[in-house]
């Protein structure tokens, strides 16, 4: 279980140490000062170095950089007064510094020196332009994607969990389902694309089916292995205490298997992203996948990069949400495994 670790781990550890040593807050935060200076530097490069490839919104990008520098200075001067925000900013201080340098170099290679060829590469303000001018369409795409993913993932998770419990519990069900799983499971869900678009009445329902399929396989396998690996003594104890079959399934087998189930849910979420993009590109004509396709078709590479960033944020937010749910449901594991 240790393989799956929320990215908050290191962060909360840092929070713990910084909370302990009150003296640290009094000390000068050098990384923060450097990062702030670097952001100001980036802003200066963006604002004062003339562009070879003129693009709007250079000014706005410079202002954004100055704002980030201001945030760093604020945290620097107020110590830990800002609470969680301050701790977060301080923990990611080195990242702030590196990001400023990265932005500066990117800006120089594209807008200022045109080393990277247009239109395949976009300048930072080119991407900012997309967000400012095309946010409505992007937002709508995100909404479509999230809705489609939620539907498919939900059905897939429910079906996978139910199947996993059934074949983990019932020998007869296992007899019939194992060979099918072994044969069909490893196929990438996208291989079913032509068939499912043919069978299902709409491309929407076909996409839901494909995402559900991609989710269901890992959830089934891990739920099943979770149920199969439950300590037999748990059943013996419950049976001597008068447990019925129902009790053994729902109060012993399933809770004991839940850590495995969550591994399956994480894996299913990962595979469902891939299927989502493909399904949107080829089928539903909406959502981020479709936006990507469209941007590429028009050689609007800035839009493509912008959409990719949004997609990355969406996926990682969804994974974070799943982590939060796991942390709640499996809170009893805290202190039992490396959290």
């Amino acid at each position: 279980m240790t393989a799956i670790e929320s990215n908050d781990t290191a962060f909360s550890a840092a929070r713990a140490t910084s909370a302990q040593s009150g003296r640290r807050s009094a000390r000068f935060w050098r990384t923060g000062a450097v990062a702030a200076a670097l952001w100001l530097g980036s802003a200066a490069v963006i604002e004062f170095w003339p562009e070879i490839i003129p693009a709007p919104y250079g000014r706005e990008l410079a202002i954004l950089s100055v704002l980030i520098a201001a945030l760093l200075v604020l945290v620097l001067t107020t110590g830990f007064l800002l609470g969680k925000t301050a701790i977060w900013v301080r923990y990611y201080g080195p990242w702030f510094a590196v990001a400023a340098v990265g932005l500066g170099i990117w800006e120089m290679l594209t807008a200022k020196l045109a080393v990277l060829p247009v239109p395949f590469f976009s300048s930072p303000q080119g991407i900012l332009e997309v967000y400012i001018d095309d946010w409505a369409r992007l937002g709508e795409s995100v909404l479509h994607s999230v809705l489609l993913l939620a539907k498919g993932y939900f059905f897939g998770a429910v079906v996978g969990f139910t199947t996993g419990v059934t074949i983990g519990w019932s020998r007869a069900a296992g007899y019939w389902v194992h060979p099918i799983l072994r044969l069909i499971g490893p196929l990438p869900a996208t291989a079913w694309l032509p068939l499912s678009f043919f069978i299902f009445p709409s491309s929407g329902s076909a996409s839901v089916f494909l995402i559900a399929l991609a989710t269901a396989f890992p959830v089934t396998i891990l739920t099943w292995s979770g149920i199969a690996s439950v300590n037999r003594d748990y059943y013996d104890i419950a049976r001597t205490l008068g447990a019925s079959r129902w009790f053994l399934i729902f109060k012993v087998a399933i809770p004991a298997a839940l850590p495995h189930v969550f591994v399956g849910l994480f894996m299913g979420l990962g595979t469902s992203f891939a299927v989502l993009v493909v399904a949107e590109m080829l089928g539903v004509k909406a959502g981020l996948g479709w936006y990507l396709q469209w941007a590429q078709g028009w050689a609007a590479y800035a839009n493509m990069y912008a959409a990719l960033i949004v997609m990355a944020l969406m996926c990682s937010s969804l994974i974070t949400i799943l982590f939060r749910i796991r942390d709640r449901v499996l809170s009893w594991q805290k202190g039992l495994v490396r959290w």
Binding site: N231, D233, I237, P255, A256, Q333
Partner: peptide, 13 residues
């Protein structure tokens, strides 16, 4: 009722 050699408590409870 049998009290086992190992306590075998349910860790999620």
């Amino acid at each position: 009722i049998l009290v086992f050699q190992d306590p075998t408590l349910f860790p999620w409870r």
